[in-house]
């Protein structure tokens, strides 16, 4: 299992990094032929940054759209961030003090994480409009996330693996050395699901994470009259 997970994580990390890098490059290099901000929109760059931050951190548009989806979605993402921050301890030999200070909150965050994911799953089953637009992959994605969170929570509460050994294992992987991984079924399951999630990240709807920053309706300024939009110099030549 030591070697299996080492290979799996190296491979998944490579796929995730290269895949995501490729996607970001693709978004970056694809031309935006016209100015299409959704108005009213800010007319300056700082304004656009503020608008984007309100979307990324507060899900502002979603708040306007639907309070249920907003609360479930926002609390899920916020909990996920707290839980992920806690996982830094597995990648640093001497984790920073703030990670330990955060620990009680991060541990509590597991509950809203699972509750909100279940809520989102329930909506997919119960609301006719959302059931209609859901593909099998939309359900599978939620099952995956719930399974990852649940296996993590169960380890934390009832069946803790040797956390120090896990830390040794991953800090070792970062230094290209192989340390023993505790023999622990739930841990194996947890890690396997995470590997899979990393693998599908650049090929699935998880691309919404980099995608939002490239969304022209949100990231363009409303200043076409001051700064005419000319995507490429050679494309239109009306003076020639």
């Amino acid at each position: 299992m030591n070697i299996f997970f080492a290979i799996a994580f190296y491979f998944a990390a490579a796929v995730m990094t290269l895949g995501l890098g490729h996607k970001v490059f693709q978004y970056w290099s694809t031309p935006a032929p016209f100015r299409i901000p959704i108005t009213p929109a800010p007319s300056t760059l700082p304004g656009v940054v503020l608008r984007m931050m309100a979307e990324v951190f507060l899900f502002k548009s979603l708040f306007k759209a639907n309070k249920w989806i907003w609360i479930l979605g926002w609390v899920f993402h916020a909990s996920l961030v707290l839980v992920l921050l806690q996982h830094i301890v597995y990648f640093q030999k001497q984790p920073a003090i703030w990670i330990y200070q955060l620990q009680p909150y991060s541990q509590l965050a597991a509950y809203p994480l699972i509750i909100c994911l279940s809520g989102l799953l329930l909506r997919r089953f119960l609301v006719d409009r959302i059931r209609y637009i859901s593909s099998p992959s939309d359900f599978i994605m939620l099952f995956f996330l719930i399974a990852i969170a649940l296996s993590g929570l169960l380890m934390m509460l009832f069946w803790q693996p040797n956390v120090f050994a896990v830390q040794q294992y991953f800090t070792g992987l970062l230094r290209l050395t192989l340390n023993p991984l505790p023999n622990h079924l739930l841990l194996y399951l947890h890690l396997l699901l995470v590997v899979f999630l990393l693998l599908i990240f650049p090929f699935s709807k998880l691309l919404h994470a980099p995608g939002i920053f490239f969304s022209p309706t949100l990231n363009q300024a409303d200043n076409a009259r001051q700064k005419p939009h000319r995507p490429s110099k050679t494309r239109f030549d009306n003076n020639g």
């Binding site: 694809t30 031309p31 935006a32 989806i69 409009r129 959302i130 709807k205 022209p216």
Partner: peptide, 24 residues
């Protein structure tokens, strides 16, 4: 079309099927 429009590419990739637009 997708190669020529960043918007189109991002819009096609990014939807998570949250349902916020379904009643709009």
């Amino acid at each position: 079309a997708v190669n020529q429009s960043r918007g189109l590419r991002v819009f096609l990739d990014s939807c998570v099927k949250c349902g916020a637009c379904t009643d709009k």
